[in-house]
Design a protein around this nucleic acid. Structure first.
Length: 428
RNA sequence: GGAGAAAUACCCAAGUGGUUGAAGGGGUCGGUCUUGAAAACCGAAAGGUCGUGUGAGCGGCGCGUGGGUUCGAAUCCUACUUUCUCCGCCA
């Protein structure tokens, strides 16, 4: 959500930005909302004047009554009553305009960073850099669920029975590996100075509508029946929700947070649930990083954050690449974003495992997350988020890259303390 | 889950329908005293947000949140949220 002042003063910047994102159908909205905003402000002046009159009139009645002038007071009451209904009418229009303006402002994309490559859709995303050495395997890598099966590590059939498609039982060493990776990721971020959080896994509807669009909500969020609660789709929801309507002294910035949570997603639309495996599922777990900082600092943090993901994956023997989101693929709230993709030796290609985003002040403006300088001035924070690691999807990359020809799995040094010291787990 | 009490500015707190942006403290800032500080005393300012104006300013909204009653609401009604106390239940 951008500042409407930008539309008042510099609509061309906003339109250019829309063109860069190939959303030309939204161009007309700029002039439309500009006009609505003018109407709104003119109306405000009118209503405010009336309200001022009513207020002073009401005070006058108080005085008259005090002086025992009942007749005059009654007369004044009459005239104020008619003014009251007039005000009510205008207020209805005022409210309507406010809602219309807000709705349009939600759909106008944030101004993208000048470094973002221009492109229509995800096919034009740009590979920036590759990290880690790809070790060619001279044997065939099985599908990830088959690898898991070799360790008696997964039971999807039973999960289908208990919960339907898109669920899984992880078992034995694979389940332990899953927990180990999360624990390692947690400590990895703590060692980077991030503050570890376990947030609520359910949030109220007002937080939900605050942190996401209506469409997103429909496609992602599970609602708890009877209660006003939703299962979170990512801990970002509860982590950002924590700061809604807050003013924090800016000397406390940056807030570097890392949070663990299970994530629940309906996955309606998009690609849907893949039948086989744990690539896209209704329930997974995720270690997340969230940074709230001063505007000047957000690009530095963006760079640091995606690099943390790279470092973590490399430390687990998984080659990755950074893929920068082009303008057309960038979500409307974001000013810059990239994916970290892990190498799949089986598919001989990279696939998404982390997504790092700088939202600029758009999220903060929408949620009123403000900072206060030592001079007392208040301004909107910048917010960023990135995946640290999200198993079981991450396990796909882990298993494929650390698999040996004899079916055993190497446990990288970093992970061994979390796996009871084992350097290898063996096929069952 | 049941019963009761409560929510006022940075903090504590007064205020039950009429100049209440909201008494009084604390804190903050300045001064006196002191080598410096503390204490004490004297004095002062500011307090959210939006609109409007070049500007000093003017005005709207605002006392947990949303509705309502009224010419007028911090004050009355209502729903919700949260906190505290007691009872019940439970990892």
């Amino acid at each position: 959500m951008i500042d409407i002042k930008l539309i008042r003063e510099n609509p061309e910047i906003v339109k250019d930005n829309i063109r860069k994102k190939f959303q030309d159908d939204k161009l007309a909205l700029v002039d439309e909302v500009k006009k609505l905003d003018e109407d709104y402000r003119n109306l405000r002046v009118e209503v405010d004047e009336l309200r001022a009159k009513r207020n002073s009139g009401a005070k006058e009645i108080g005085k008259l009554l005090k002086n025992g002038l009942k007749e005059e007071a009654e007369q004044l009451k009459q005239s104020l009553a008619t003014m009251g209904s007039q005000i009510e009418e205008l207020e209805a229009t005022e409210k309507k305009l406010e809602v219309e303006i807000r709705n349009i402002m939600f759909t106008i994309p944030n101004i993208i960073d000048k470094s973002v490559p221009i492109g229509k859709d995800d096919s034009e995303n740009v590979e920036v850099e590759r990290f880690g050495e790809i070790k060619e395997k001279n044997f065939e890598i099985p599908y990830h669920t088959d690898i898991m099966n070799n360790f008696n590590g997964i039971d999807i059939d039973s999960a289908r029975k208990t919960s339907g498609q898109g669920f899984y039982y992880l078992m034995g060493d694979i389940a332990r590996l899953h927990s180990a990776i999360l624990a390692y990721a947690r400590d990895f971020m703590i060692n980077k100075g991030f503050n570890y959080h376990i947030p609520p896994f359910m949030i109220r509807s007002d937080v939900v509508t605050g942190v996401m669009s209506f469409a997103e909500m429909e496609n992602m969020m599970y609602k708890i029946e009877v209660e006003d609660l939703y299962l979170i789709g990512t801990s970002e929801h509860s982590m950002i929700g924590k700061y809604i309507d807050t003013i924090t002294p800016d000397i406390k910035m940056p807030l570097t947070l890392t949070s663990y949570s299970p994530c629940f997603r309906k996955e309606v639309g998009a690609h849907g649930i893949e039948e086989r495996g744990v690539y896209r599922i209704h329930q997974f777990e995720k270690q997340e990083m969230v940074v709230i900082c001063k505007p000047d600092d957000s690009m530095n943090w963006y760079e640091k954050m995606w690099r943390y993901s790279v470092e973590l994956f490399l430390s687990l023997g998984i080659p990755v690449r950074q893929l920068e989101c082009c303008s057309g693929d960038l979500a409307d709230l974001k000013i810059k974003s990239c994916d970290i993709e892990a190498w799949s030796p089986r598919q001989q290609k990279y696939f998404e495992v982390c997504s790092c985003s700088n939202l600029g002040d758009a999220q903060a403006r929408r949620l009123q997350i403000r900072l206060q300088g030592e001079d007392g001035k208040k301004y909107f924070a910048h917010t960023l988020n990135n995946t640290v690691v999200a198993p079981p999807r991450m396990l796909i990359a882990f298993l494929e890259n650390n698999l040996n020809e004899d079916g055993s799995l190497d446990i990288p040094v970093a992970l061994r303390p979390y796996m009871g010291g084992q350097d290898k787990i063996l096929k069952k």
